[in-house]
Amino acid sequence: MARVFVTGSADGLGLAVARTLSDEGHEVVVHARSRERLEAVAALLERGAAAVVGDLSDPDQTRAVAEQVNELGPMDAVIHNAGVYSGALVLPVNVVAPYLLTALIRRPARLVYLSSGMHQGGRPDLRGRDWTGRRVTASYSDSKLFVTALAAAVARRWPEVCSNAVDPGWVPTKMGGPGAPDDLRLGHLTQEWLATGDDPRARTSGGYWHHQELLDPHPAVRDEQF
């Protein structure tokens, strides 16, 4: 059984992933933005899950989250699930936080980054971006292009780690809305599979996945200079 840290696991896909992994007997470390939000994962905590707390829009709190994770011991996998859809915090939460956590958490065997099919509409241009969250300089699509490129870069730089990006589809979560047409179970199956699966395909690296199938990402993802 694996020890897996899931960011943004107080609701949506992150909570679904944490519940499924716990049901399967894995050791889960959940994450909430604040102590008040831990109420959403109370059932998981009662079953033995560990918890870390910190607002991923704040770099100092993100560093503190990494410290809390490292204090718990090495992780087998980290699923970078937390994200926001719009506003000035898109870059801090969707890109800067996964970058900082990747750099600061003791290196696991597997890394999974939540992308989106919308990354195909992202702009491969880093000029003029405000990474602090003080003003809007990037769209959700831009942020998902950046984090997909991050997953590919980690795969190249750390060949001993399986690093992959996942498009979960448009699923009925708080972010996706109740009318989202895709299957919620399929929306988190691939993350779990890449984090803990024994399938040889789940032990590969550098992929962009949708429902356990490899897809071609935006060309910039394979551009090492970008």
Rank of each mutant, 00 (worst) to 15 (best):
R185Y: 12
V147R: 02
A202W: 03
G177M: 08
L189R: 15
G187M: 03
A153L: 14
W170E: 08
E192L: 13
G179C: 09
G177D: 12
W170H: 14
R135G: 14
P159F: 02
L194R: 01
A195F: 02
K174T: 14
G207P: 02
A149E: 01
D142E: 06
C162S: 14
H188V: 11
D183P: 04
S143A: 14
G176P: 12
A151N: 03
K174W: 11
K144R: 11
G207N: 14
P168N: 09
P219L: 08
D216R: 14
E160F: 05
T148H: 03
A165I: 06
S205E: 04
R201P: 00
Q191N: 15
S205L: 04
E213C: 10
T137I: 13
A138Q: 00
Y140V: 02
R135N: 12
D182A: 14
Q191T: 07
D198P: 08
L214I: 13
S205I: 04
A220E: 01
L189N: 11
D183H: 03
G133L: 07
W170L: 14
V171D: 03
V171Q: 02
A220T: 02
N164L: 03
S163C: 10
D216N: 12
A180F: 08
V171C: 12
P178L: 10
P178N: 12
H210Y: 15
P168Y: 03
P219N: 10
Y140P: 01
Q191P: 10
P181G: 07
A149V: 05
T173H: 07
Q191Y: 13
S139Q: 06
P181K: 09
G176I: 09
G177S: 08
G206M: 09
L194G: 00
A138W: 01
V161C: 06
H210Q: 13
L214V: 13
V147T: 08
P217I: 01
K144E: 03
P178G: 12
R185W: 13
T204P: 03
L215S: 05
S163M: 14
A195C: 07
V154A: 06
P217H: 00
R156E: 14
E160R: 12
T190P: 00
G169P: 06
A152T: 05
P181I: 09
A138F: 01
P178M: 11
T148M: 04
V171N: 04
P181R: 07
A151I: 03
A149L: 09
G176K: 09
Y140N: 01
P178Q: 11
R201H: 09
P178Y: 09
P200T: 09
L150K: 02
